[in-house]
């Protein structure tokens, strides 16, 4: 509880510091909106030209896109400490400072940055989701709302976990940003389309190693009423938990990396 209070307090302070430059903030948020709108435009143009991707209609594709945007950018907004530049955190000596305080390292990393500009991307994601719901005539009910929330939440954990890979590499002073981007941003780009569009190896990658498909797409498909890879019912509620599993594994790897950091110096 105390940790949560500290996190909220930190977010308040960070928000305040971002608001010191309101003009810059507005401009950058606008840029984020336009950026994500560009991605959405690509989906719309594809739908315009091809009408459908396998059994998925334009509305379905927008829904998948929205799910991915919302959870990815919520993570980038509130988990900026991890999704940001971890190597810079080490270089600037901030990581050292975290060791000097009586709190967990992961807590402090999360407490040290926020990226409220991502609200722009999230807004576009919400717009895509709403549009997708309309076009695909989604009937919401309590169960679907629960599934939606569950998917977004565990999606965030999965994405945090993926970005932790970069943090771990950075501790071992391996330059890996572009490599890890292939999994994080690559995963985002790939899994804004349903996974059954992909050949075997990519399905395995995003179905098991970086299980975007299980966490985000299986629930999305159930909400749309067209189960993905035949997963429905209770199984659909269990699938997103793989995001939690992934995060927990990465959490321990991260703790191990911190031990390594303390024994090798910076």
């Amino acid at each position: 509880m105390n940790t949560l209070k500290l996190y909220l307090h930190s977010m308040k302070v960070l928000l305040k510091s971002q608001m010191q430059y309101p003009f810059s903030f507005c401009l950058q948020t606008l840029a984020q909106i336009v950026m994500e709108a560009g991605e959405m435009l690509a989906v719309l143009l594809i739908v315009n030209r091809f009408q459908a991707l396998n059994q998925w209609t334009g509305g379905d594709l927008l829904f998948f896109f929205g799910m991915m945007s919302i959870s990815f950018y919520l993570t980038e907004c509130f988990g900026r400490g991890i999704t940001g530049n971890f190597a810079a955190l080490i270089r600037s000596g901030n990581l050292d400072t975290f060791f000097l305080r009586p709190r967990g390292i992961m807590t402090q990393v999360l407490c040290h940055a926020i990226d409220p500009r991502r609200i722009g991307c999230i807004a576009v994601g919400v717009a895509a989701l709403v549009l997708g719901c309309q076009q695909s005539q989604v009937q919401w009910n309590g169960m679907k709302i629960f599934l939606f929330t569950e998917a977004i939440f565990f999606g965030m954990l999965l994405i945090l976990g993926l970005f932790l890979i970069e943090a771990v590499f950075a501790v071992h002073s391996v330059k890996s940003i572009e490599l890890v981007n292939a999994v994080t941003y690559g995963g985002r780009s790939a899994c804004q389309y349903p996974i059954d569009a992909y050949p075997g190896p990519l399905r395995v990658l995003f179905g098991t190693l970086a299980p975007f498909a299980l966490v985000l797409q299986v629930p999305s498909a159930v909400i749309l009423g067209k189960p993905l890879l035949g997963i429905d019912g209770v199984a659909a509620f269990l699938c997103p938990l793989s995001g939690l599993v992934f995060f927990v594994i990465m959490y321990f790897v991260f703790q191990k990396a911190m031990k390594f950091y303390r024994s090798t110096g910076s």
Binding site: N2, K5, L6, H9, S10, V13, L14, K16, S17, Q18, Q20, S92, G93, T97, L100, R101, P102, R103, Q108
Partner: peptide, 29 residues
């Protein structure tokens, strides 16, 4: 323990220092 590095700042750069102090109060309980 307390640590001061002459060439490195631990306080938050853009907010009034009193806000930094309040946050440190929470960090150190």
């Amino acid at each position: 323990i307390g640590v001061v590095f002459g060439q490195r700042m631990q306080l938050w750069w853009d907010v009034p220092i009193i806000d930094s102090y309040r946050l440190l109060k929470d960090i150190y309980k």
